[in-house]
Simulated scan of single mutants.
Amino acid sequence: MRFSLTTVTATALSLLLATTHAAESIKDEPLAMSTPFILARQQALLPSSLTPSAPPSAKLRGSEKEGEKDEEALAVSVDNSGSDKMGQQSFWNVFYSTGDRNMIRDLGNNRMSFTIAPWEESIAAQSSVKYYGGRLGFKVKSGAVMPGVITAVYFSSGDGRTGDSSLGSQDEIDFEFKGNEPSRVQTNVFMNGQEALQMVDLGYDSSSSEHAYAIEWDNQAVKFFVDGTERRSVPLSRPLQAMELHMSVWTTTGGWPGLIQWGGSPDWNARGNQPVESIFEITEYPSSG
């Protein structure tokens, strides 16, 4: 996906929430302020005084066409006094969305809900923390309810791919749940301009319930786990660069043919134009520097 971000700083968050509350009449449903906190919800009445900043270097997926203009997105930094690490403003660098109806909710206890609205392209979060190795444990109920919807948990050092044949110089470790293959998960390691992609059979529909996954890495290998069982190990020729954690739900809407062939194309009409929700829970954090 393609991002050009407008950032709303934590100091402006109270103004954003006040504006969002004032715009309640234009929403399809009431604000779930007791959830306990809506981390990011973009509305039509965002204050014009907020200033843009540079986007994060890592992207979900770039355009195949070199130089293609990035699409606008909104980003919100979070101010949350909750005790769970995943809900703290200091943990995240930015939340971002390409649509004005997407939503991220902090569910507490290191759990989050990501909802992507019909016809939108993406909603995502990028950590402010860089990781150097260790083990990330997490649970996911994916949004793989139809082709063209992808739920991703991944690490990236930035300088990401810009197309099917332009992988960039980033290091990256991926778990991606695709709606056109809901009973499988794609694992991938990007390194030295190459990728090592492999599909892993799950034996269940990843969108039907939460399951446990893990990524573990050191200077020798990256290992992928599903429900406590190691399912794949990728040897490394060198230590990986420091990487941020990303979580996202995105679609192939507006994508180039190679992307649609890979992930399928969403049919929102067949789904009754209902939004897609993914649930994320972090159970174990790797080492950070």
Rank of each mutant, 00 (worst) to 15 (best):
M1S: 09
R2Y: 10
S4K: 12
T6V: 10
T6L: 13
V8I: 13
T9D: 15
A10L: 01
A10Q: 12
T11E: 13
L13M: 09
L13K: 11
L13R: 13
S14Q: 10
H21P: 02
S25K: 02
I26E: 08
K27T: 05
E29K: 14
P30Y: 03
P30M: 06
S34I: 07
T35S: 09
I38W: 02
L39R: 06
A40F: 08
A40T: 09
A40K: 08
A40H: 13
Q43A: 12
L45Q: 12
L45R: 09
L46G: 00
S48P: 06
P52F: 03
P56V: 05
E66I: 04
G67F: 01
D70C: 00
D70A: 15
E72A: 12
E72K: 09
E72S: 09
A73D: 01
L74I: 06
A75N: 04
S77M: 11
M86G: 01
Q89K: 11
S90F: 09
V94R: 14
V94K: 04
S97Y: 02
D100I: 04
D100S: 14
G108F: 00
N110V: 02
R111I: 01
F114H: 03
A117W: 14
A117F: 12
E121D: 10
I123Y: 07
A124T: 10
A125S: 15
Q126A: 11
Q126T: 08
S127D: 10
S127W: 10
S128I: 04
S128Q: 10
Y131T: 07
G133I: 11
R135M: 04
L136D: 04
L136A: 05
G137I: 03
S142I: 01
T151P: 15
A152E: 08
V153F: 06
Y154A: 09
D159K: 15
D159I: 00
G160A: 06
R161D: 15
T162D: 10
G163C: 10
S165E: 14
G168M: 10
G168A: 11
S169E: 11
D171A: 06
D174T: 06
E176A: 09
F177W: 13
F177N: 01
G179F: 01
N180C: 07
E181H: 08
E181K: 13
E181F: 03
P182S: 03
S183E: 14
Q186E: 10
T187L: 02
V189P: 10
M191R: 15
M199F: 07
G203Y: 05
S207R: 07
S208E: 11
S209Q: 10
E210L: 14
A212E: 12
Y213N: 05
A214H: 06
E216H: 06
W217F: 11
D218I: 05
F225T: 00
V226P: 00
G228T: 06
E230C: 11
E230G: 04
R232M: 03
R232P: 03
S233M: 11
S233A: 14
V234G: 00
R238I: 00
L240Y: 03
L240E: 05
Q241Y: 00
Q241P: 05
L245A: 09
L245V: 04
H246L: 12
M247F: 12
T251N: 04
T251A: 02
W256N: 02
G258N: 14
L259T: 03
L259C: 00
I260D: 03
I260S: 11
D267A: 04
A270F: 06
Q274T: 12
Q274N: 15
V276P: 01
S278G: 05
E281I: 03
E281L: 06
E281Q: 15
T283S: 13
S288Y: 14
G289R: 06
